[in-house]
Design a protein around this nucleic acid. Sequence first.
DNA 1: TTGTAAGCGTTATCAC
DNA 2: GTGATAACGCTTACAA
Lengths: 342, 342
Amino acid sequence: MLKRKITLKHIARELGVSISTVSKALKNSEEISRDTKEKIQAFAKLYNYKPNNIAISLKNKSTKNIAVIIPDIVHHFFTTVFHGIEKIANEKGYNVIICVSDESFDKEVINMEILANGSVDGFIMSLSSETQLKNDYNHLKELTEQGIPLVLFDRVTDEVACDKVLINDRDGAYRSVKKLIENGKKRIALVATEDYLSVSKERADGYFQALKEFNIEVKESLILKLPSMSSVEGDAMENFFKNEKVDAVLCVNEIYAIHGMRIAQKLGFNIPQDIEFIGFTDGILSKFSNPTLTAVAQHGEKMGEIAAEMLIEKIESDNEVETYRTEILEPTIIERESTLNA
Amino acid sequence: MLKRKITLKHIARELGVSISTVSKALKNSEEISRDTKEKIQAFAKLYNYKPNNIAISLKNKSTKNIAVIIPDIVHHFFTTVFHGIEKIANEKGYNVIICVSDESFDKEVINMEILANGSVDGFIMSLSSETQLKNDYNHLKELTEQGIPLVLFDRVTDEVACDKVLINDRDGAYRSVKKLIENGKKRIALVATEDYLSVSKERADGYFQALKEFNIEVKESLILKLPSMSSVEGDAMENFFKNEKVDAVLCVNEIYAIHGMRIAQKLGFNIPQDIEFIGFTDGILSKFSNPTLTAVAQHGEKMGEIAAEMLIEKIESDNEVETYRTEILEPTIIERESTLNA
DNA sequence: TTGTAAGCGTTATCAC
DNA sequence: GTGATAACGCTTACAA
């Protein structure tokens, strides 16, 4: 007994009225007599009529869908941002279509092209690392030229004029290192990824800034660059801790920090007495590691909420004036066991 | 210089031909002369014409979208499943619309209703805990009655006839406990959530089965039930380890296990010599905890891939015969430092 | 109070 | 070879 989807046309035929009468009756229009309305509404309820969204989208030129393109869904930070986006989107009656670029330029472009043809009203995205490396933003420019709203978050670029939300990564790193210095540390290491990622560069800059401010010389040997976020394998880090005298470490992500702490412990160092650790992106590992990790919280959920609000505002405003804003969130340093706290 | 979205109609008018000629020319139809085709195709390329997906959806009664409804996006396991779904969906030309029920029955129903009206071709979902508690599946039944394909994963129910993918949770728990027993352990604890979640119940059953098989008496005092997955707060667990003599623990999730290990360590126990730990859902914490956690891997990504394949197969097959299958994946026990290994 | 018709953008059928 | 027309499901002037 398959109840096939019922349309206005079916109801109209069944009840011997016109389609527009049905349409109006279901919208409780004053034009229609009470009798007819009741009859039609009863029938519609009985057969569980629901208007077809696609038809409405076509008519209204509005889909009530927004696209989110992120580099990686398994990454806790993006997940957090997504949660914020989803929350606001749902509140405002939007669905969220999600695409993962897997850090690939091509996948980013393809996803965008597929969805830009009417499927969504706007985009929220964070650039893939490959895109940042290539420095090619034509797909984004085309989007904005077509008047499709776009909001960039976290991994953004100056090349594209659009709304942006980001974390003050430089300042997060600066304050972290400042804190370490004030705790009396002198040989502060930085564990980073290759620096084509905008955020990684910003964090390194904050590190430099703090050292400079306190007249501590930057030693290249205290900066460890690891190829990719996931590759904590190999013994680059172990060698680093064996060869360098280090009394504090700032890591650009949790994994590096957790891994670094284990190695330091294995080598007999006490945390935080001998070496302090601070790691970016306050995720699940920071809370549950042993010792727990002092972390720079990125406020991903808040970021997602702001991005969604910005986007929906653009979607729903009809003024053609192109005015963009960039919102910068301040990170928070969450003090835990891996640092000496006042 | 906003390049507004261009349609067949614009091209036709601009080139002085009919809409259908344009449509055919862009599809490289044999009917159209080479000259006309070239002219039209060139023009279309110049103005970056892309067919409107919404119009095509309306025409074809197919959206190439699938909906995924999960209880929680920040949860690593669901994220993993989602990754598998996304991968297959993209390969087969589908977009993924994601909704989060936040473990709420109402949100689950609402999300479903919004999307069931033409926005998507089918659903993949895992039941919210509230839905399992209420035991009310009318929204799912209505869906299938309307002929909309549905695949359930992980948290499923017998009440609804549809395709299903799940993990043999019972067996994962059974094998875990068997392993602990074979390691010589006698006082094996179970740390679980309230058991209205289908998976939690299954895991408890596996625990009982193993004990029974080895003639070990089930002691209620060795079973600790915690209210909710996130609430590891409070000292229920600490009291448990203080009051009960325990030599091994099976936890239904990572968080419980990591938390349990820290408490055990604080109380002076050695892991795994004094107490062994095994935790469900091999996530990021298991790999990076100290000691690393022996875990029951759920193969989330594989699960997602299978679910997506099942769904798309149903969407694209037109035979009306209703035949459903349930695929059961075997979990894998990943041995790490928290257990004694051969 | 109800119905007709045009339109959203596309495709498919059938004339010319 | 090309074009008119209907159709997908809905909304909304505008007639009747």
